[in-house]
Design a protein around this nucleic acid. Sequence first.
DNA 1: CGCACCTATTCAATTAGTTCAATAAGGAGA
DNA 2: TCTCCTTATTGAACTAATTGAATAGGTGCG
Lengths: 187, 187
Amino acid sequence: MSLKYAVLAALLEGEASGYELSKVFDVSLANFWPATPQQLYRELERLAADGLIEARTVQQERRPNKRLFTLTEAGREHLNAFAAEPTRRPTAIRDEFLIKIQAMDGVDPEAVRALVEERRAWAVGKLARYERVRERLLDGRTEEEYLRDADRVGPYLTLSAGITLERENVRWCEHVLTVLKRRAPLG
Amino acid sequence: MSLKYAVLAALLEGEASGYELSKVFDVSLANFWPATPQQLYRELERLAADGLIEARTVQQERRPNKRLFTLTEAGREHLNAFAAEPTRRPTAIRDEFLIKIQAMDGVDPEAVRALVEERRAWAVGKLARYERVRERLLDGRTEEEYLRDADRVGPYLTLSAGITLERENVRWCEHVLTVLKRRAPLG
DNA sequence: CGCACCTATTCAATTAGTTCAATAAGGAGA
DNA sequence: TCTCCTTATTGAACTAATTGAATAGGTGCG
């Protein structure tokens, strides 16, 4: 449903192939709408059929050919209309890890510790990657300057939401680890 | 895939009907694995067929009859085994609103402001509901006492993750609103 | 030289999730 | 009394997402 708009929004950054988008959707940018490569290729076909994006094939000599997609004017308008509408669906979070935490009291504390430690490491890594993207966007300016003067602030604001999320994630994990330590000596 | 375990984990709180679970999955508890009533009823059928939960029908005079489900010993063990395993799937967030923010630079600032304001109000409401659940769980004790002494801390820890999330959500929204105000006079 | 990995895309099958609606009885309020 | 809301569950149809694999040339490593 919204994958459509996630793809259009990703193409605001410029021309991209399905493969490039699948990298972006996997790691950095669109962390608020995950999609597998298969989903993206299908969606790109549909969007092209609807005239919201345009494809051109680029012949490559030492690589498989690729198809690069760009937003059409119709696609841009479609996206803008969507972005101006009130939000229909609330945020949906699916987190296997938190199910495990909910049920942690029936589990060996050492296994729980390992779980939380893994999560923490993962969040730390993601945070570092986000911070690097942030530095690249700011390019020497302060956040205040950037947010006052830049042409586009949307990508920066979603990024800063991601940074906050992962920062709090790390703090939460560390909190849980101290709780586990405090409870351990009793067991 | 994990809906199964989300349901089992929800039943750790005690016997419940499909209807009751659908309320819990909708609002308070399992905010990290949303599910519609239809999904829950289907999943409950499957779990009962697999012997992980047991059903009993309760005749009601002034209401439709309901079927109450409880964890079986097999179900409890199944859940514990799952919770001790390393997490396979990373957190998946699907957020239509953040797609709109990503694309906000092509949109009337007043429409964006309304969007963010709506999101803020929603987060404030959710936070208030979470805080009420928290007070009920703590029941006069301090957090430190609770986390040291309570039989089960899983539900409290997932709740506190939710509280942190919404708190930061509110702060982020307020930040974006000040950014919009600063940029508005220029347009 | 062989193996594994990267780019780049596509197909097929299956499972998961959404949407709409029907049923059925009681309670609340105009 | 008419209508709408709540409890409680079920059915069917549909769309979206996941999984696994196939293809195919190139690069890097030991």
